[in-house]
């Protein structure tokens, strides 16, 4: 019933046509009915604040990031065109490769966990048993909390003298340097990202699970399929597009990781900066009074390119399974 009006190609009817007429023609038409002065109601007036904000603070910075990546601009010094010099410097910059490695590892570590674990969690809270609303809400709490709060909570949990190490010590395992070893630190940060994201993706899966036809499960059960078998033959295929969505969303945000590692490893990125991620490098190189805007923009361009590539890769994997 609403779908014809929803099609932007064919906005028929007087309502859709009128504002255009009103904004292009000024004249006393319809004045017989409305004499008192009206606010101008040009569509552009409605859209202007949004377009202005989006244009000045998203689209323009995007273009200027790309442009700046070919200059040697600094925070206080307007730059000159330097061609591909920034990218050539990137190629020989060990810290850049460290950042690229860590951000890539982050995707590889976080995405499988965020595709699978929230699905299991959604299955766990799917049934309407008493108190389930409370559990669902409780599992969502880490999503609501600020990443700074979450980061600091886990810094304290994983501290050398924190809760986890004192438990490990009490059971005789001994201390583990979660926040001092380069690799353990990165893994800890990944675990925190997964911990914070569980509830978010759980809700997405829960919505998708509600749309899986019950008949499929019943038919499979009649054929003698057990719960595990039904999970792989009914649930997983039915949720495939949701899993692809979750993979796409989580891989893009994992590649752009900043806060978790910044808070847990410190601004300089852990021991000898070995836990620096790409976005941390952008922040470190490009800010401050001596910030190298041009060079930081070149790193940002790499972030764009990889982000888009990740999206395409995930979507392509989806299409291939379709065929």
């Amino acid at each position: 019933m609403n779908s014809p009006t929803a099609a932007p190609a064919d906005p028929s009817g007087p309502l859709a046509a009128a504002p255009a007429a009103r904004s292009t023609r000024s004249g006393p038409h319809r004045a017989g009915r409305r004499i008192r002065r009206q606010l101008p109601s040009s569509p552009w007036l409605f859209a202007a604040p949004g377009l202005l904000v989006v244009g000045v603070f998203s689209l323009y910075p995007f273009v200027s990031t790309v442009v700046n990546s070919f200059t040697d601009r600094r925070t206080l010094v307007p730059g000159h065109y330097v061609g591909l010099a920034n990218f050539r410097e990137l190629w020989h910059d060990d810290m850049f490769w460290t950042g690229l490695r860590n951000s890539t590892l982050y995707v590889l570590g976080v995405v499988p966990a965020l595709v699978v674990l929230p699905l299991l969690l959604a299955l766990l809270v799917q049934r309407h048993i008493p108190g389930i609303a409370f559990f669902r809400a409780a599992f969502y709490t880490p999503v609501v909390a600020s990443i700074v709060v979450v980061g600091l909570i886990w810094v304290w949990m994983l501290d050398d003298r924190g809760l986890i190490n004192s438990v490990l010590e009490a059971v005789g395992v001994g201390k583990v340097g979660f926040l001092s070893d380069q690799w353990l630190l990165l893994c800890s940060a990944m675990a925190v990202t997964v911990w914070k994201g569980l509830g978010y993706y759980m809700i997405i899966y829960l919505a998708a699970l509600a749309n899986v036809p019950r008949e499929l499960h019943e038919a499979a059960a009649v054929d003698g399929a057990g719960a595990v078998r039904r999970f792989f033959t009914v649930t997983v295929p039915a949720l495939r597009s949701t899993m692809v969505l979750v993979a796409a969303l989580s891989s893009v945000s994992a590649f752009k990781v900043f806060s978790e590692v910044y808070l847990m490893a410190g601004p300089s990125g852990g021991p000898a900066g070995e836990d620096t991620t790409l976005v941390m490098l952008v922040q470190r190189v490009g800010t401050g009074l001596t910030g190298r805007v041009g060079y930081a923009s070149a790193i940002s361009v790499v972030v764009f390119v990889v982000t888009v590539a990740l999206m395409l890769l995930v979507l392509r994997a989806d299409r291939r399974e379709d065929a």
């Binding site: 998203s58 689209l59 910075p61």
Partner: peptide
């Protein structure tokens, strides 16, 4: 314009936002 703006990753334009 809004769709494109939605796709721009905030983390990638943060330096340009700062200079703006």
């Amino acid at each position: 314009a809004f769709i494109l703006a939605m796709l721009v990753p905030v983390e990638g334009i943060i330096i340009a936002q700062f200079t703006t």
